[in-house]
Amino acid sequence: MYGGGNVFEATKFDTLQNEDPAKLAEFEARIARGEKIEPTDWMPELYRKQLIRMIEQHAHSEIIGALPEGTWITRAPGFRRKMAQMAKVQDEVGHAQLLYSAAETLGKSREQMLTDLINGKSKYSNVFNYPAFTWADSNIISWLIDAGAIVNQLANAKGSYGPYCRALDRICAEEAFHLKYGHDAVVHMATGSPKQREMIQAALNRWWTPIMHFFGPPDKMSTHTEILMRWKVKMASNDDMRQQFLDMYVPKIWELGLTVPDPNLKKNPETGKWDYTEPDWEEFKRVINGDGPCNAERLAVRRTAEERGAWVRRALLHPKAKYVKPLA
């Protein structure tokens, strides 16, 4: 799962000046025709760099995103939830695998990406630095964070890079299960006992700010992304995705009699857009730069998994193996 809010490198246009103009024109024409770019095609360095960065962040978000819901994997109530929770978290690990592979086709090894993650060099989606205090938090994540991720992933699936699109096609198919599962669990809580209702409302209150953060800062605050849009790397603006999410899910929240902790949230009949209180973007920056409630634990867990699993990899590595990128 992944939102917007990805940190693109400021686009330096001078890097394009070193590119072969004929090749660049051909590349841009291909994208304009709606054809996908495949790994061995010529591509501008900037395209490669930004794609690696974006897909890598997306992959990290999946593997780290497995942890908040993983918090409840051993405590899911009843067989139905127990099995589904396991499958849902497993899928997120699977998404990471698919996305790391897609990024690898661009020339950065999985191992390097994981090292950069562990050392705090690469980012992942901010929301996963928040704790899942109760089972209800896990349900809110499954439903609404995944819903947000779907908005983003469906947009990105129409992007220009073939391997990323292929991965996203598989991912989106699985997300349909996550969304339904999360919704099902939330509905059971919201229409259940008073205690369950209280739990789910409290969780929604806790998660509202991270959900609003999920799509990234307002467009007016984001770095210049015009060229990334033309190259179909970035497919939708942060604000558009946030609006789309609110449009689809606020009514579904309200119909359960749940409330959203933002008195200003309403659809403006004149603009047709949702009005809301801007979430605290200073907090967003703080958390993305490492100072959230769970950043340290998330990275420590990932690092421990890597370190404690190292003997398995050491045991079976071929000393003469050369690095070969996956094909597609």
């Binding site: 942890l67 051993t74 090292t115 562990i118 340290a296 867990v301 990899r313 079976l316 590595l317 070969v324």
Partner: peptide, 30 residues
């Protein structure tokens, strides 16, 4: 941790020392 599985990993509290540099290739072939 809130996650009992993480608690059972017995991780030290606080910041971890910098990670050991990795061997040349720490991933399998594809």
């Amino acid at each position: 941790s809130l996650d009992p599985r993480v608690t059972r990993l017995n991780l030290p509290e606080g910041a971890l020392p910098p990670a050991e540099p990795k061997p040349v290739l720490d991933q399998f072939e594809t």
